[in-house]
Each structure stands twice: as structure tokens, then as C-alpha cells.
């Protein structure tokens, strides 16, 4: 790995006033070979992830696993506490978990009746996995970030679009990267302190 070219610098931040300019700039930066960079916008911009060359997220798979966990949890909880398992298993299940309740002679393993809680817990676990998975993978909560030092960046949540090439990028060179970003005709171009 290259050492950062400019100590004390987080990266260079270019500001644009419309989403298309940001997509074009990100695309140019990717073609140039930059990798450690990100775009910033007040709303999701279509095609920006592709232009930046970032991979798709694995979140759907993670959320599926979360949902499956909820499904199995509810199934096992209901089956085992209702005594839905074979009697031979009793030896392996603690007494306090084993509560055979004869309701009008219905089978102990009445799985049809277990479906609603299974469904609800599947949904509940998926929802928790979705939100917390998104937060953790995004590296949040992080109330402070070097980008917030740049005055212009306040408008990233309102009406401006930013591209930040970070100093840890192997290709990053303070002068060359500056020149390159300047060639994309941004409204402003700022150095982001570490």
C-alpha cells in the first residue's frame, strides 16, 4: 500500500449542483482508476453506485438469514413448549421448557396454529436485521466525520452533490487529483482536513 500522499488530509471534495454532473464525475474518476471515494447527495441518485464502481450490498442475504432465525425461533419455541416433539426427546429438554397442554384433544404438535406467531417473528427479526444491518454496515452511528468540517458540505442534505476522493486512495496525489477534479468543473473544490 502507498502511504497517504498528504498527511493531515482526509481527501478532496468537489461540489456539483445537479445529480447528473455528480454521476458523470464519479464515472470519470472510476475510469481514471480512483477507488477510495464516495459520492454524497441529498437523496439516492440512480446510477451513482455503478458509476463509483461500488459493489452491491449483501444486505438482502443478511436479512434473509435474520428472517430465517425468527422463523426457526418461533417454530422451536412453540413446538418444544407445547410438547410437540416426540416423547423420547423429553429427556433432553429441560422440564421448565416442556409444557404439554391438552386442549380438547388437539395434537401437541398443532403446527397450523403455530403459523401466525412464526410469521410475526419472521417479520420482526427481518425488520431488526434490516435496520441494524444497514446502520452497522454503513459505519453509523458516527456523529462526527471529517467531511462535516467543510462548510459547503452542509448543503449535501439539501440541494448539492459532492464527490470526495480520499487521501488513502493509492492513486491519490494532492496536485494531480486536484487538477483532475478541477477538470470536472465543480462549483467548489475543497480540501477536507483529517
Amino acid at each position: 500500500m502507498h502511504a497517504p500522499q498528504a498527511p493531515g488530509l482526509f481527501g478532496l471534495l468537489a461540489e456539483f449542483d445537479n445529480p447528473q454532473a455528480l454521476v458523470n464525475a464519479a464515472d470519470a474518476a472510476r475510469r481514471k482508476g480512483y477507488k477510495v471515494m464516495d459520492g454524497y447527495s441529498p437523496f439516492p441518485v440512480e446510477g451513482l453506485r455503478e458509476a463509483l464502481g461500488k459493489p452491491r450490498t449483501l444486505l438482502p442475504v443478511i436479512v434473509f438469514c435474520g428472517g430465517l432465525t425468527g422463523c426457526l425461533t418461533a417454530f422451536l419455541l412453540q413446538t418444544l413448549t407445547s410438547g410437540g416433539h416426540p416423547r423420547e426427546w423429553d429427556a433432553f429438554i429441560p422440564n421448565w421448557f416442556n409444557y404439554r397442554l391438552n386442549i380438547g384433544g388437539r395434537p401437541f404438535f398443532s403446527w397450523q396454529a403455530f403459523v401466525p406467531p412464526i410469521f410475526e417473528l419472521t417479520v420482526l427479526f427481518s425488520a431488526f436485521t434490516s435496520l441494524f444491518g444497514m446502520i452497522l454496515l454503513n459505519g453509523l452511528p458516527r456523529p462526527h466525520h471529517p467531511l462535516f468540517e467543510v462548510k459547503e458540505f452542509e448543503r449535501a442534505s439539501s440541494d448539492r452533490f459532492f464527490l470526495c476522493i480520499e487521501a488513502t486512495d493509492p492513486l491519490f496525489d494532492i496536485d494531480e487529483t486536484h487538477e483532475f477534479l478541477k477538470g470536472l468543473s465543480p462549483i467548489t473544490l475543497s480540501e477536507v482536513p483529517q
Binding site: P42, F43, R49, T57, N138
Partner: peptide
């Protein structure tokens, strides 16, 4: 500390 990064938006839209 949301900052509207493209990678974050992508995960956000997904979930």
C-alpha cells in the same frame, strides 16, 4: 451522523 454517501444510500434503499 447520516451524511448521504452513495454506498449508504444504496444500502438504505435496499432495506
Amino acid at each position: 451522523g447520516w451524511r448521504g454517501a452513495a454506498t449508504h444510500w444504496h444500502r438504505y434503499e435496499t432495506i
